[in-house]
Design a protein around this nucleic acid. Structure first.
Lengths: 244, 244
DNA sequence: ATAAACTCCTTACGTCGTATAGAAAAACGA
DNA sequence: TCGTTTTTCTATACGACGTAAGGAGTTTAT
């Protein structure tokens, strides 16, 4: 991110790449990005080391630097690349349903590539596929005849809600592991010891937790799903109400 | 996070600390956490290395491990500690205003300690001050007479929106630096070269950007502020509408 | 007095991104 | 055609990081 952006952007937006002088390149940026995405899908973003990606392609870490100027840029490319999977969400019909559809699809993308959530920064879009995702949403919001201000507010809110909900879902999914379950049990016990007055100090939190437990079955996972759907509904209702 | 949570939780919730045998400790957990927060405020979370914190206190990195079992736990402690600054947000009066007030205060906290945004995971609350922040919100939502389901949905949405907006604001603030301005100029130029058909491919994005530019002055910063306020308004309106 | 428990220091390991420098390979100018 | 230039890729190395291991010194319990 700190280096000259021109090359990264050129690669993102469909290269130029005139005839070069030296030896032919044995790999390609696409191949490297695909390999990196595979590693990230399997083992998370931290596992995407230059050495690991190089190894996967049968070459050294340093050779990758002739394709991408830094690991950060590689991650930018990965980020944009997976956004192609989302495709276009058309704006026809009821805009409320379209917003819900867009949100669900973006959340699915995050769940399929949880490492997307490990990337921080709300930096403006850099690549064409990210841009397409944003454009799709803006088209829907335009069809709802929101003001420009509300389009921005809604966009920001929707991205945030989807990301937050996806993170919750991913964490919930991970918490089902045996080791994590034990960890939580131990944490709960330690908490009960350390704060015996929890229920009096935090009655509302306790009430919500009790209600959650009452629903039984999959306490975290499905609760997160429902909270997501409902959160989107709340926002849509608000947009509807303040639309005039 | 991977180790026994009991000790971390004991420290978080106000210790026990019976009489120990060896030499007296020359520092305290509070001192270490405060020092780490100072470093993070100044230089971000990455600057909080065990060596840096130790150095600040005139001791070695390894000595810190008698106070906190790992860097991750230190960060948990930092996280909870700064949440004490937010204090209680009372639930009296109009719940709509209270929600807005709570959101604004949390956002201010994030802006004052931007490294909070570098911490990922939507893990359930661990410390008492985080818990208090959640409790305050739940009290407000209870006074609004939302269903339990809607309280969860609204909680999740509000945390997400606040966090997302804060991140945007922090990034906008950072983008005013000279070096970054140059970077963006270069990126813009590169983008114009790489995608001359941008405006046709992404008409809605272009329209929003044009509207933004038309407003002039501080294009990013105040726009982010307004989008935040409006996003919260949208959600509150939705809660209001679907309340029955 | 001796033993146990504890703090803190020094040293060291394995990891990372990437700087540097050189070898081999391809295209260019003559 | 033959250097010259440009580029790819490798090997090596540096300085960071979190933290494991081991040991010296200090305090308390027996």
């Amino acid at each position: 991110m700190r280096t000259d952006p021109a090359r990264a952007i050129a690669v993102l937006w469909g290269r130029a790449a005139g005839p070069r002088r030296g030896p032919r390149q044995a790999a390609s940026v696409e191949e490297i990005v695909a390999s990196a995405i595979g590693i990230a899908d399997a083992d998370g973003l931290d596992a995407v080391t230059m050495r690991a990606v190089g190894n996967e392609l049968g070459r050294t870490a340093m050779s990758l630097y002739t394709y991408v100027v830094s690991r950060d840029v590689l991650i930018d490319l990965m980020y944009d690349s997976v956004h192609a999977e989302l495709g276009e969400v058309r704006a026809g019909g009821d805009w409320r349903k379209a917003v819900a559809r867009w949100s669900g699809k973006l959340r699915d993308l995050y769940l399929e590539h949880p490492w997307l959530l490990e990337i921080q920064s709300a930096r403006p879009v850099l690549g064409p596929h990210e841009q397409q995702v944003l454009e799709s949403l803006l088209r829907i919001l335009a069809s709802a005849e929101l003001t420009f201000e509300d389009r921005q507010a809604a966009t920001s809110a929707l991205f945030s809600i989807v990301k937050g909900a996806a993170r919750q879902a991913v964490d919930a999914r991970a918490a089902i592991t045996k080791a994590d379950a034990e960890w939580w049990a131990a944490a709960g016990k330690a908490l009960a010891d350390a704060a015996p007055d929890f229920a009096e100090r935090f009655p509302e939190s306790t009430a919500v937790a009790a209600h959650q437990r009452r629903l039984g079955a999959q306490p975290w996972v499905t609760a997160a799903d429902q909270a997501f759907t409902r959160a989107i509904e709340l926002l849509i209702a608000g947009m509807d109400k303040l639309r005039d």
